[in-house]
Amino acid sequence: MLQILVLLFGISLLFMSVTNMLNTLIRILAFQGLMLFAITILSSTQLNWLSFAFIALETLIFKALVIPWFLSDTIRHNAINREVEAYVSNFFSLALMSLIFIGSFALAIFSGQHSDKLFPVEFGIAFAAIIKGLFIIMANKKLITHLIGYLVMENGIFLLSIAVGGELPMVISIGISLDLLLLVLVAVLFIKRIKSGFELTESLDEEGEEC
């Protein structure tokens, strides 16, 4: 069952590569949040009940409900164009995602020789999600898409921490604090309504414009 959920999470990453609409991306994020919630419940044996309850609830409320809602509302209120407007085509994105999967699974299978505690499917998909998140950040100009990329990356990290958590359950709780950063980023975008997009690599002038 756990493996099926992880595979569904992996398929959602492929879906992200072929969609052009921000709202679809946000729905996929909510779906990923639900998958992670279910995965947390099935992995509950690694955690004590208090940590388990906190992490499961946080995952459900935060990743599956609150953040997707915030992002949808920001798009509505800031009148952001609903298209993703990526620098690369869907075909390129999908091809790259496939390569990321191949690379991640190769790493997971190869590295399985170094750690008998590692589950290649979890590790491969988690690692692929982290790389995919980075790719979304680099391949898009909109701040909202950067945030979506960060969230995908964070979902991958959460999955990885669940996979690794058998060795040291504390890391799952530590990793949850990444959501705090995300919350601040979303809150600034939501409340302050800053410009919808700028290059992360370009300097800003005294008025906040790229120079």
Partner: peptide, 19 residues
């Protein structure tokens, strides 16, 4: 506006780094 965008850029890039 400039400080807000600079802070956003700071926190975003550092968040990715921290992740």
């Amino acid at each position: 506006k400039a400080s807000l965008q600079a802070a956003w850029k700071y926190i975003f890039i550092c968040s990715v780094g921290i992740a």
